[in-house]
Amino acid sequence: MRPNKIAVVGAGTAGLPEAAVLASAPGTDGSPPPRVVVLQRRSPENEWKVDAINAGKSPLGGIEPGVDDLVAAAVGRGTLSASTDLHECRDAQAVLVCVGTDRQGLLPEYGGLMEALGGVAAALKQRPGLTRPLVMIESTVAPSTMQTVIGPYIEGQGLVDGRDLMLGHSPRHVRRGRAVDDLRGQTRLVSGLRAETPVTAASFYRRFLTRGRILVTSSLTAEVAHTLASAWEDVRHAFASEIARHCERLDVDYLTLRDQVNDVLRWPDAMRPSDAMFGGDALPIPAGGVGGPCLPRDGILLWWRALEAGHLSRNSIILAARAVNDASPAATV
Protein backbone atom coordinates (compact mmCIF):
# COMPACT_ATOMS: atom_id res chain seq x y z
CA MET A 1 0.00 0.00 0.00
CA ARG A 2 1.41 3.40 -0.99
CA PRO A 3 -0.79 6.15 0.47
CA ASN A 4 -0.47 9.75 -0.66
CA LYS A 5 -2.26 11.08 2.42
CA ILE A 6 -2.54 9.67 5.94
CA ALA A 7 -4.69 11.05 8.76
CA VAL A 8 -3.66 10.39 12.36
CA VAL A 9 -6.41 11.10 14.89
CA GLY A 10 -4.86 12.13 18.19
CA ALA A 11 -1.88 14.41 18.87
CA GLY A 12 -0.71 12.75 22.07
CA THR A 13 2.16 10.45 22.96
CA ALA A 14 0.78 7.71 20.69
CA GLY A 15 -0.40 9.67 17.67
CA LEU A 16 2.17 12.41 17.18
CA PRO A 17 5.34 10.25 17.14
CA GLU A 18 3.71 7.93 14.61
CA ALA A 19 2.61 10.86 12.45
CA ALA A 20 6.13 12.32 12.54
CA VAL A 21 7.71 8.98 11.59
CA LEU A 22 5.22 8.44 8.75
CA ALA A 23 5.78 11.95 7.40
CA SER A 24 9.50 11.21 7.30
CA ALA A 25 9.31 7.70 5.78
CA PRO A 26 9.97 7.31 2.05
CA GLY A 27 8.48 4.26 0.40
CA THR A 28 10.54 1.13 -0.10
CA ASP A 29 10.22 1.82 -3.82
CA GLY A 30 11.85 5.23 -3.41
CA SER A 31 8.61 7.21 -3.42
CA PRO A 32 8.61 10.37 -1.27
CA PRO A 33 7.06 10.46 2.21
CA PRO A 34 3.26 10.85 2.22
CA ARG A 35 1.38 13.88 3.43
CA VAL A 36 0.31 13.32 7.02
CA VAL A 37 -2.27 15.39 8.86
CA VAL A 38 -2.66 15.13 12.63
CA LEU A 39 -6.26 15.63 13.72
CA GLN A 40 -6.98 16.85 17.23
CA ARG A 41 -10.49 17.48 18.50
CA ARG A 42 -11.35 21.12 19.02
CA SER A 43 -11.23 22.10 22.71
CA PRO A 44 -9.65 24.88 24.78
CA GLU A 45 -7.30 22.34 26.34
CA ASN A 46 -5.98 20.85 23.10
CA GLU A 47 -6.14 23.42 20.29
CA TRP A 48 -2.68 24.71 21.19
CA LYS A 49 -1.23 21.38 20.04
CA VAL A 50 -2.38 22.07 16.48
CA ASP A 51 -0.77 25.50 16.48
CA ALA A 52 2.46 24.05 17.86
CA ILE A 53 2.67 21.31 15.22
CA ASN A 54 1.96 23.71 12.37
CA ALA A 55 4.75 25.90 13.71
CA GLY A 56 7.13 22.94 13.47
CA LYS A 57 7.22 22.26 17.22
CA SER A 58 6.30 19.11 19.10
CA PRO A 59 3.69 19.65 21.84
CA LEU A 60 5.21 16.68 23.68
CA GLY A 61 8.19 18.72 24.80
CA GLY A 62 11.31 16.69 25.46
CA ILE A 63 9.67 13.47 26.65
CA GLU A 64 10.12 11.75 23.26
CA PRO A 65 13.67 12.15 21.93
CA GLY A 66 13.78 12.56 18.17
CA VAL A 67 10.16 13.67 17.73
CA ASP A 68 11.02 17.39 17.89
CA ASP A 69 13.48 17.09 15.01
CA LEU A 70 11.16 14.89 12.94
CA VAL A 71 8.25 17.32 13.39
CA ALA A 72 10.36 20.34 12.48
CA ALA A 73 11.79 18.67 9.38
CA ALA A 74 8.47 17.23 8.16
CA VAL A 75 6.60 20.53 8.62
CA GLY A 76 9.44 22.30 6.83
CA ARG A 77 9.16 20.11 3.73
CA GLY A 78 5.37 20.18 3.77
CA THR A 79 4.65 16.53 4.64
CA LEU A 80 3.22 17.14 8.13
CA SER A 81 0.42 19.44 9.28
CA ALA A 82 -2.30 19.50 11.94
CA SER A 83 -5.95 20.49 12.10
CA THR A 84 -9.00 20.42 14.38
CA ASP A 85 -11.25 19.60 11.41
CA LEU A 86 -11.87 15.85 11.25
CA HIS A 87 -13.20 16.27 7.71
CA GLU A 88 -9.55 16.51 6.69
CA CYS A 89 -9.52 12.71 6.75
CA ARG A 90 -12.18 12.31 4.05
CA ASP A 91 -9.62 12.00 1.23
CA ALA A 92 -6.94 10.08 3.15
CA GLN A 93 -6.00 6.59 2.01
CA ALA A 94 -5.26 5.58 5.62
CA VAL A 95 -6.75 6.81 8.89
CA LEU A 96 -5.06 5.86 12.17
CA VAL A 97 -7.13 6.39 15.31
CA CYS A 98 -4.79 6.93 18.28
CA VAL A 99 -7.22 8.14 20.94
CA GLY A 100 -6.80 7.16 24.57
CA THR A 101 -9.21 4.82 26.34
CA ASP A 102 -9.77 4.21 30.04
CA ARG A 103 -11.94 2.28 32.44
CA GLN A 104 -14.66 3.24 34.87
CA GLY A 105 -14.61 0.71 37.64
CA LEU A 106 -14.76 -2.66 35.89
CA LEU A 107 -16.07 -1.29 32.58
CA PRO A 108 -14.25 0.12 29.53
CA GLU A 109 -14.53 3.87 29.00
CA TYR A 110 -14.54 4.65 25.27
CA GLY A 111 -16.02 8.16 25.26
CA GLY A 112 -13.13 9.88 23.47
CA LEU A 113 -12.66 6.99 21.05
CA MET A 114 -16.31 6.85 20.01
CA GLU A 115 -16.42 10.62 19.60
CA ALA A 116 -13.43 10.42 17.28
CA LEU A 117 -14.94 7.53 15.32
CA GLY A 118 -18.15 9.51 14.89
CA GLY A 119 -16.18 12.37 13.34
CA VAL A 120 -14.21 10.01 11.09
CA ALA A 121 -17.39 8.29 9.93
CA ALA A 122 -19.06 11.60 9.11
CA ALA A 123 -16.03 12.63 7.07
CA LEU A 124 -15.77 9.33 5.20
CA LYS A 125 -19.41 9.51 4.13
CA GLN A 126 -18.39 12.59 2.14
CA ARG A 127 -15.43 10.79 0.60
CA PRO A 128 -14.88 11.50 -3.10
CA GLY A 129 -14.38 8.60 -5.50
CA LEU A 130 -14.72 4.88 -4.94
CA THR A 131 -11.47 3.96 -3.14
CA ARG A 132 -11.77 2.40 0.30
CA PRO A 133 -9.59 3.90 3.04
CA LEU A 134 -7.79 1.75 5.59
CA VAL A 135 -9.09 2.74 9.05
CA MET A 136 -6.93 1.30 11.83
CA ILE A 137 -7.92 1.51 15.49
CA GLU A 138 -4.64 1.77 17.40
CA SER A 139 -6.30 2.49 20.74
CA THR A 140 -6.30 -0.16 23.46
CA VAL A 141 -9.67 -1.90 23.62
CA ALA A 142 -11.08 -4.86 25.52
CA PRO A 143 -11.37 -8.27 23.84
CA SER A 144 -14.46 -8.47 21.59
CA THR A 145 -14.70 -4.67 21.24
CA MET A 146 -13.95 -4.61 17.52
CA GLN A 147 -16.61 -7.24 16.82
CA THR A 148 -19.32 -6.11 19.23
CA VAL A 149 -18.79 -2.35 19.71
CA ILE A 150 -16.73 -0.64 17.02
CA GLY A 151 -17.87 -2.69 14.02
CA PRO A 152 -21.58 -2.22 14.79
CA TYR A 153 -21.02 1.46 15.58
CA ILE A 154 -19.39 2.09 12.20
CA GLU A 155 -22.22 0.23 10.48
CA GLY A 156 -24.73 2.31 12.42
CA GLN A 157 -23.10 5.42 10.97
CA GLY A 158 -24.01 4.22 7.47
CA LEU A 159 -20.66 2.71 6.48
CA VAL A 160 -20.11 -0.92 5.51
CA ASP A 161 -16.80 -2.60 6.28
CA GLY A 162 -15.39 -3.97 3.05
CA ARG A 163 -17.47 -1.70 0.85
CA ASP A 164 -16.82 1.79 2.22
CA LEU A 165 -13.67 1.19 4.28
CA MET A 166 -11.34 -1.50 5.59
CA LEU A 167 -11.65 -1.53 9.38
CA GLY A 168 -8.74 -2.94 11.34
CA HIS A 169 -7.03 -2.98 14.71
CA SER A 170 -3.33 -2.63 15.48
CA PRO A 171 -2.78 -1.95 19.19
CA ARG A 172 0.65 -1.01 20.44
CA HIS A 173 2.39 -0.16 23.66
CA VAL A 174 4.13 3.22 23.84
CA ARG A 175 7.26 3.17 25.98
CA ARG A 176 7.86 6.66 27.24
CA GLY A 177 11.00 8.11 25.69
CA ARG A 178 11.37 5.31 23.11
CA ALA A 179 8.45 5.91 20.76
CA VAL A 180 10.46 6.58 17.60
CA ASP A 181 12.66 3.50 18.01
CA ASP A 182 9.67 1.34 18.90
CA LEU A 183 7.69 2.51 15.88
CA ARG A 184 10.50 1.47 13.58
CA GLY A 185 11.55 -1.71 15.34
CA GLN A 186 8.75 -3.27 17.40
CA THR A 187 6.65 -6.35 16.69
CA ARG A 188 3.33 -5.15 15.32
CA LEU A 189 0.03 -6.99 15.51
CA VAL A 190 -2.33 -6.21 12.62
CA SER A 191 -5.87 -7.50 12.44
CA GLY A 192 -9.26 -6.84 10.96
CA LEU A 193 -12.84 -8.03 10.89
CA ARG A 194 -12.42 -9.15 7.28
CA ALA A 195 -9.57 -11.27 5.89
CA GLU A 196 -8.29 -8.69 3.40
CA THR A 197 -7.85 -5.91 5.96
CA PRO A 198 -4.79 -7.18 7.90
CA VAL A 199 -3.04 -8.03 4.63
CA THR A 200 -3.50 -4.44 3.43
CA ALA A 201 -2.57 -3.13 6.88
CA ALA A 202 0.64 -5.17 6.91
CA SER A 203 1.62 -3.62 3.59
CA PHE A 204 0.95 -0.17 5.02
CA TYR A 205 2.94 -0.63 8.25
CA ARG A 206 5.94 -2.10 6.44
CA ARG A 207 6.48 1.39 5.08
CA PHE A 208 8.09 2.53 8.33
CA LEU A 209 8.52 -0.64 10.41
CA THR A 210 12.03 -1.07 9.05
CA ARG A 211 13.48 -3.31 11.78
CA GLY A 212 10.47 -4.96 13.38
CA ARG A 213 8.08 -7.78 12.60
CA ILE A 214 4.45 -7.73 11.51
CA LEU A 215 2.14 -10.47 12.78
CA VAL A 216 -1.15 -10.86 10.95
CA THR A 217 -3.90 -12.17 13.24
CA SER A 218 -7.57 -11.87 14.15
CA SER A 219 -9.04 -8.86 15.93
CA LEU A 220 -9.87 -10.91 19.02
CA THR A 221 -6.33 -12.31 19.25
CA ALA A 222 -4.84 -8.81 18.91
CA GLU A 223 -7.14 -7.49 21.64
CA VAL A 224 -6.28 -10.33 24.01
CA ALA A 225 -2.53 -10.25 23.31
CA HIS A 226 -2.27 -6.51 23.88
CA THR A 227 -4.21 -6.37 27.14
CA LEU A 228 -2.59 -9.59 28.37
CA ALA A 229 0.90 -8.09 27.99
CA SER A 230 0.00 -5.22 30.33
CA ALA A 231 -1.80 -7.52 32.74
CA TRP A 232 1.35 -9.67 32.98
CA GLU A 233 3.41 -6.59 33.83
CA ASP A 234 0.90 -5.62 36.50
CA VAL A 235 1.09 -9.09 38.06
CA ARG A 236 4.90 -9.04 37.92
CA HIS A 237 5.10 -5.71 39.76
CA ALA A 238 2.54 -6.80 42.35
CA PHE A 239 4.55 -9.96 43.01
CA ALA A 240 7.73 -7.89 43.45
CA SER A 241 5.96 -5.51 45.88
CA GLU A 242 4.64 -8.39 47.96
CA ILE A 243 8.05 -10.06 48.14
CA ALA A 244 9.75 -6.75 49.01
CA ARG A 245 7.38 -6.20 51.94
CA HIS A 246 7.97 -9.75 53.14
CA CYS A 247 11.73 -9.21 52.93
CA GLU A 248 11.37 -6.09 55.03
CA ARG A 249 9.56 -8.07 57.73
CA LEU A 250 12.32 -10.72 57.66
CA ASP A 251 15.14 -8.13 57.51
CA VAL A 252 16.32 -9.52 54.15
CA ASP A 253 17.94 -7.25 51.55
CA TYR A 254 15.44 -7.40 48.69
CA LEU A 255 17.80 -5.89 46.09
CA THR A 256 20.43 -8.56 46.74
CA LEU A 257 17.76 -11.26 46.64
CA ARG A 258 16.41 -9.80 43.41
CA ASP A 259 19.83 -9.90 41.71
CA GLN A 260 20.33 -13.53 42.69
CA VAL A 261 16.83 -14.60 41.57
CA ASN A 262 17.20 -12.85 38.22
CA ASP A 263 20.59 -14.50 37.69
CA VAL A 264 19.07 -17.93 38.30
CA LEU A 265 16.15 -17.25 35.96
CA ARG A 266 18.57 -16.34 33.19
CA TRP A 267 20.24 -19.78 33.24
CA PRO A 268 19.28 -21.73 30.11
CA ASP A 269 18.13 -25.30 30.47
CA ALA A 270 15.96 -27.79 28.61
CA MET A 271 12.76 -26.16 29.81
CA ARG A 272 14.01 -22.59 29.45
CA PRO A 273 16.40 -22.51 26.49
CA SER A 274 16.66 -18.76 26.15
CA ASP A 275 17.33 -15.84 28.48
CA ALA A 276 14.71 -13.94 26.50
CA MET A 277 11.98 -15.95 28.25
CA PHE A 278 11.19 -13.12 30.66
CA GLY A 279 12.04 -10.20 28.37
CA GLY A 280 14.58 -8.82 30.83
CA ASP A 281 14.57 -9.00 34.63
CA ALA A 282 11.84 -11.33 35.85
CA LEU A 283 11.77 -9.70 39.29
CA PRO A 284 11.64 -5.88 39.01
CA ILE A 285 12.41 -3.19 41.55
CA PRO A 286 9.12 -2.39 43.28
CA ALA A 287 7.82 1.15 43.26
CA GLY A 288 5.30 3.03 45.34
CA GLY A 289 2.47 1.91 43.07
CA VAL A 290 2.14 1.15 39.37
CA GLY A 291 0.50 3.88 37.32
CA GLY A 292 0.45 5.17 33.78
CA PRO A 293 -2.43 4.63 31.36
CA CYS A 294 -1.89 0.95 30.59
CA LEU A 295 -1.29 -1.21 33.65
CA PRO A 296 -4.17 0.06 35.84
CA ARG A 297 -6.54 -0.34 32.88
CA ASP A 298 -5.61 -3.30 30.71
CA GLY A 299 -6.09 -6.21 33.11
CA ILE A 300 -9.63 -5.00 33.76
CA LEU A 301 -10.24 -4.69 30.02
CA LEU A 302 -8.88 -8.20 29.50
CA TRP A 303 -11.51 -9.64 31.85
CA TRP A 304 -14.34 -7.28 30.87
CA ARG A 305 -16.69 -9.85 29.34
CA ALA A 306 -15.98 -12.40 32.08
CA LEU A 307 -16.63 -9.81 34.77
CA GLU A 308 -19.77 -8.74 32.94
CA ALA A 309 -20.97 -12.36 33.11
CA GLY A 310 -20.21 -12.55 36.84
CA HIS A 311 -17.06 -14.68 36.61
CA LEU A 312 -13.55 -14.27 38.07
CA SER A 313 -14.38 -11.58 40.61
CA ARG A 314 -12.85 -13.54 43.52
CA ASN A 315 -10.25 -15.86 42.02
CA SER A 316 -8.42 -13.75 39.47
CA ILE A 317 -4.68 -13.29 39.96
CA ILE A 318 -4.87 -10.28 37.64
CA LEU A 319 -7.53 -8.52 39.71
CA ALA A 320 -5.69 -9.38 42.93
CA ALA A 321 -2.48 -7.90 41.48
CA ARG A 322 -4.29 -4.69 40.64
CA ALA A 323 -5.52 -4.48 44.24
CA VAL A 324 -1.94 -4.96 45.52
CA ASN A 325 -0.63 -2.23 43.23
CA ASP A 326 -3.47 0.14 44.10
CA ALA A 327 -2.54 -0.31 47.79
CA SER A 328 1.20 0.13 47.27
CA PRO A 329 1.37 3.93 47.74
CA ALA A 330 -0.21 3.69 51.19
CA ALA A 331 2.03 0.75 52.13
CA THR A 332 5.13 2.67 51.03
CA VAL A 333 4.54 5.74 53.21
Score class of each variant (00 low, 15 high):
257 L>M: 10
245 R>S: 01
184 R>S: 09
207 R>G: 10
200 T>A: 15
27 G>M: 03
232 W>V: 15
115 E>F: 11
119 G>V: 05
330 A>P: 07
239 F>S: 05
252 V>Y: 15
268 P>N: 00
255 L>W: 11
9 V>Y: 09
306 A>D: 15
74 A>W: 03
196 E>I: 10
9 V>Q: 02
134 L>C: 12
50 V>K: 08
297 R>D: 08
244 A>Y: 09
276 A>C: 13
260 Q>L: 14
230 S>P: 03
226 H>Q: 14
19 A>R: 02
168 G>S: 10
69 D>H: 00
45 E>M: 00
237 H>S: 15
8 V>I: 04
245 R>C: 10
50 V>L: 12
201 A>N: 00
189 L>R: 00
317 I>C: 13
279 G>Y: 04
89 C>F: 11
10 G>Y: 07
55 A>D: 13
205 Y>W: 03
109 E>N: 14
221 T>N: 07
192 G>D: 02
333 V>M: 12
271 M>E: 14
308 E>G: 07
282 A>Q: 05
58 S>M: 12
97 V>I: 03
56 G>V: 12
104 Q>G: 14
205 Y>M: 10
255 L>G: 09
22 L>S: 00
88 E>N: 13
16 L>K: 01
74 A>M: 00
238 A>S: 04
46 N>W: 10
40 Q>A: 03
204 F>V: 14
113 L>H: 05
87 H>I: 12
185 G>P: 06
155 E>N: 11
52 A>Y: 11
104 Q>D: 15
304 W>M: 04
333 V>Y: 13
333 V>C: 08
67 V>Q: 04
77 R>Q: 03
124 L>N: 07
54 N>E: 06
91 D>G: 05
253 D>F: 11
219 S>W: 12
85 D>H: 01
178 R>A: 15
302 L>P: 00
228 L>I: 11
31 S>F: 07
14 A>V: 09
169 H>N: 07
311 H>M: 14
35 R>K: 07
299 G>W: 06
7 A>Q: 15
264 V>M: 11
200 T>G: 14
225 A>C: 12
193 L>R: 06
13 T>D: 14
63 I>M: 05
1 M>K: 02
34 P>N: 05
177 G>M: 13
98 C>I: 12
47 E>G: 00
78 G>M: 02
136 M>F: 04
47 E>K: 10
206 R>D: 11
285 I>C: 10
287 A>V: 11
112 G>H: 10
135 V>W: 05
296 P>V: 06
282 A>R: 04
304 W>G: 00
195 A>Q: 14
89 C>T: 00
62 G>I: 03
262 N>M: 06
68 D>M: 15
175 R>T: 14
184 R>M: 08
221 T>H: 11
128 P>A: 15
59 P>L: 15
14 A>H: 04
306 A>L: 06
142 A>Q: 01
185 G>F: 03
190 V>G: 02
16 L>V: 08
14 A>M: 13
286 P>V: 03
124 L>M: 15
165 L>H: 06
297 R>V: 11
71 V>A: 01
148 T>L: 14
93 Q>F: 13
220 L>K: 05
152 P>F: 05
